[in-house]
Design a protein around this nucleic acid. Sequence first.
RNA 1: GCUCUCGUAGUUCAAUGGAUAGAAUUCAAGUUUGCGGUACUUGCGAUGCAGGUUCGAUUCCUGCCGAGAGCACCA
Length: 586
Amino acid sequence: MFRDIENLVEGHLKSMGIDNPEANIIWIKDKSVMSDATTTCALKYAKELNINPKILSGEIVEILNARKGELMVQEIKLEGPGYINFKFTDEFYFKNLNISAKNVLENIRDKDLLKVKDREVLVEYTDANPFKVFHIGHLMDNIIGETVANIYDLAGANVKRISYQGDVGRHIAINIYAILNNLEEYKIIKEGGDVKKKVVWLGDKYAEGFKIFDNALHHAEQGETLETESEVINKVKEINKKIYEKSDETINEIYKNGRAWSLEYFDTLYKLLGTKFDKYIFESEAAPIGMDLLNKNINIFEHSDGAIIYDGEKDGLHKRVFVNSEGLPTYEAKDIGNMSIKLAEYKDAMLSIVITGNEQKEYFKVLYKVLKKIFGSDINFLHFSHGLMRFADGKMSSRKGNIKAGDELIYSIMDELRVKFENSRIENNEEKEDVIEKVAIASIKYSVLKQAIGKDVVFDLENAIRIDGDSGPYLQYTYARICGAVAEDISTPNQNTDESEFIITENSKDLIKLILRYEEVVGETIRSMGPQVLLSYLVELAREYNSFYASEKIRENIYNINLSSRVRDVLHHGLHTLGIKTPSRM
RNA sequence: GCUCUCGUAGUUCAAUGGAUAGAAUUCAAGUUUGCGGUACUUGCGAUGCAGGUUCGAUUCCUGCCGAGAGCACCA
């Protein structure tokens, strides 16, 4: 919306000899400053031109002043060390309020953002492992990954959502080892109906198996087994090999069932979380492809102690093992296959992103060195990593101990919400359950997304669902409140409202300015890949609206209704970008 | 030991090198003859320490102190 002004300023800077000048105009957040927006470009370029910033900004102000009317600027002032400040006319506000939330991208210009426009961007996230529990870490990964994908969507990219799942490897051998020790239980579980129950059982068996295996590995005291340490280790190795070779009927059957149960259960969770993957890739298919590509590029690697490694120390990184001394591919080699599968499916992809926990940061640096050498320079790689979720107090512990499963966390929040929703205005039980689900997910997503990606998250159940102001439910409440106020029977606002449909008053002015700032916020969110930027803006908007609501009777006039529905549109657009659903009643 | 990340109100988080460092919560005091009080208003309160670069530093650089993560056959 500032394009015309920026073009004029940049034109002048160009004539002064600056290459590709950028005169970004941004809204002033400080309410004590009387102007609406500002640019600091004179300060930046005066240094380059070696002249006094006040002189440069003075020239620019003069040029702009001559065209104040057509630019819809009421006043242009030179303030401070060289800020060029703008105060806009009412006409400017009306005109730009017509830009709907959906079109914000049209008005964003940032060269980096335009690069991904209409190009395929692959986002891999969640990466839950069949046979294993859907951990809190997977939950965070999913929330952050979904948001990153949505933000790239917003930037105009053709985003493909991918989940890469570890359906082979030692963790499964350990699980099957434990199941083989409990075949009677397995037969009973197999007949039972509930998939959740089966998955919980699998998780229990993994824990059992892991304990025995880990004890054997570290020469700790034996669990309930008669086998010696080396027998346990060898058995797990043997099972692992048999899974790869598909050579044992019993193991094949257990493997097939366990994998299917897990995947079916994960799908119910993805649905709950609002994720739709475009593609699932499995380690079992990635492994042979990875081995093949590794052999074709063997010159990149080195042999060491019987293993095949990449010496990252040459690049100031670590050495990583790609194939272990038994000839089996590790995660590293499988990831080469994973990438190959992605590129086979999405040939035009220009960017491949993976979301994981912070602990894998160094690993991905090494992996990307290798991938770059194998797959060339047409594709770029990014790794976003997130921190851990900690709990604020002991209240999060369930009867079994502290919550570690992601689904368990969601269900326990829903239990808390059911109590709160007893007095809800919603009488239909089905709708109520649906809303409870959406509020529960919103409360977790808000907690995860309110800080920059990469930082640890502190989850406080009390704050997440109850406390006002700093929560997902607060934003949802504000949305529902507007929906209630802007009732359909009063007026359905026209999408193409002209200036006769808005009015600027003492109470509405700050709110209008805030709505106009949405464009800038979206640009900043994409540029910094920072959901917290968008989220804190939405809180500010909700707060400003609630303040407006307290001072005005919304249904009293059409202007208030129109403005309210504009706020509703922005909230809807922003929250959906963050993967938060917006029920119209709650 | 080496490498990386991070230190901001009591607490949880913000701030492309820009104006008086923003929010939320806690605590204190208030608000409704009105569409959803899960609301609104006011107040108290912070950049770990020491230097450097700059017209200007929470941001960039150096050192110190403190926290976390990673450092080959796991994922």
